[in-house]
C-alpha cells in the first residue's frame, strides 16, 4: 500500500499513499471515519474498520472530538493498518505541544501511518472535560508547518533526525465559518504550510460550499466534502447547538420529522434513518457537480453501518483498486 519513491527533489512528493494516488488518478475519492473506542478495547477499532473498509479508500481516526477522551488516534490508526485499510490520522492542536507533536509524528511514521490530518480541535468547554488546561502551543497551520519541517530531516531545533519521516499532509476547512474571505486565505496558508488535501466540515446546504470552492479555485489542493448522515431530528438539533461550525437547514430537520410522523418504535427509527441516508445521498450527488470537489468524506459518528449504505446508494461501490 505504501510505496516509497526515492530520488525525487521535492521532499513531500516522496511518499505515495493510496489516498494520494487515487487523487492523482482523478478518481472520485471516498474516505470514511471510524470513531475510536471510549476505552481500551482495540478490537472495536478492528471491527469498525472491517465494517467500512471495502467502501472507503482511506479511514480517518478522529482525535478526542469535543475534548471527550477516546483511544489515541495514533494507536487506532495502527489497528486500522492491521485490519488491512489505510488510515488518516487526525491530530488536533488542542492537546499537544510542539514536543509531543514531534514525538508522535516520529512514532506514527514508524508504525506505517502516512496520511496525517491537522485540525485546531474543538474547545473543551463543549465536551465532558471542561476543566482541562488546553494546550494550543501551536495552531493547526503551525503544526502542519512543523510536520513538513520534519520531512526535511531535522527537528525544530535544527538537530538531525535519526530517520526522516514522510507524510501526505491534510487539513480541514469549514465553508460555513465566518468571515469567508479569511477562511479562504486560511486554506492557502494551510497549503503553503504543507497541506495537500482538505476535508470539509459536514455539508448540508451546498450553496456556501459552492461559493467557497470558487474562492479557492487555483489553489491546487484536493478537497473531500464532509458528509454526516442524520439519524433523526434530535441529532440534527443537537449538532446545530453543540458541534462547532455546523449548519443544518430547518428544511432537512422537517424532512426527518415528516418521515417518522405517525410511526412508532423500530418502524419509525428505520423510516427516519432512511430519510437521513437519503439526504446524505442527495448531498453527495449535489457536491459531485461542484467544480474542484475530488470526493467525499463520510463521518458515521457512531453509525458506521451507514457508510456502506451511502457508498452503495450513490454508485460509488466498488472502490477502485
Amino acid at each position: 500500500m505504501i510505496v516509497l519513491l526515492v530520488n525525487l527533489e521535492e521532499n513531500r512528493t516522496l511518499v505515495e499513499t493510496r489516498l494520494k494516488s487515487l487523487f492523482e488518478r482523478g478518481e472520485f475519492v471516498v474516505t470514511g471515519e471510524v470513531g475510536p473506542p471510549h476505552g481500551a478495547n482495540h478490537q472495536l477499532v478492528i471491527e469498525r474498520t472491517r465494517l467500512v473498509k471495502d467502501y472507503c479508500d482511506a479511514i480517518n481516526i478522529t482525535d478526542n472530538v469535543r475534548g471527550i477522551p477516546t483511544m489515541s488516534s495514533m494507536t487506532c490508526s495502527y489497528y486500522v493498518l492491521e485490519a488491512g485499510a489505510e488510515p488518516v490520522m487526525q491530530m488536533s492542536a488542542r492537546d499537544r505541544n510542539r514536543i509531543l507533536f514531534e514525538s508522535e509524528l516520529y512514532g506514527a511514521y514508524a508504525m506505517g501511518i502516512r496520511n496525517i490530518l491537522f485540525m485546531t480541535g474543538d474547545h473543551t468547554l463543549l465536551g465532558s472535560h471542561p476543566q482541562t488546561k488546553m494546550v494550543y502551543d501551536l495552531d493547526s497551520i503551525q503544526a502542519l508547518g512543523l510536520a513538513r519541517h520534519l520531512m526535511g530531516g531535522t527537528d525544530l531545533a535544527g538537530d538531525k533526525l535519526e530517520g526522516t519521516p514522510n507524510y501526505y499532509l491534510g487539513a480541514t476547512f469549514n465553508p460555513y465559518a465566518d468571515p469567508m474571505e479569511m477562511h479562504v486565505w486560511r486554506v492557502e496558508k494551510k497549503r503553503d504550510a504543507g497541506a495537500q488535501f482538505f476535508q470539509t466540515q459536514a455539508i448540508y446546504d451546498t450553496s456556501r460550499l459552492e461559493e467557497f470552492m470558487k474562492g479557492i479555485r487555483g489553489y491546487k489542493v484536493k478537497v473531500l466534502t464532509g458528509i454526516i448522515p442524520l439519524k433523526g431530528p434530535k441529532m440534527a438539533a443537537f449538532m446545530n447547538r453543540q458541534i462547532p461550525g455546523i449548519k443544518i437547514p430547518e428544511e432537512f430537520i422537517e424532512r426527518l420529522e415528516k418521515a417518522g410522523s405517525g410511526l412508532k418504535g423500530a418502524e419509525k427509527r428505520s423510516a427516519v434513518r432512511g430519510e437521513g441516508l437519503q439526504i446524505a445521498k442527495e448531498t453527495i450527488e449535489a457536491v459531485k457537480k461542484i467544480p474542484g470537489v475530488n470526493g467525499v468524506h463520510i463521518m458515521g459518528v457512531g453509525w458506521e453501518e451507514s457508510i456502506p449504505e451511502i457508498v452503495k446508494g450513490t454508485g460509488l461501490h466498488p472502490r477502485p483498486k
Partner: peptide
C-alpha cells in the same frame, strides 16, 4: 478562546 495566531478557527460563525 484558543489563543490562535492564524485564526479564526472553523467554529467562528456570525
Amino acid at each position: 478562546a484558543k489563543g490562535l495566531l492564524n485564526g479564526p478557527c472553523g467554529g467562528s460563525m456570525d
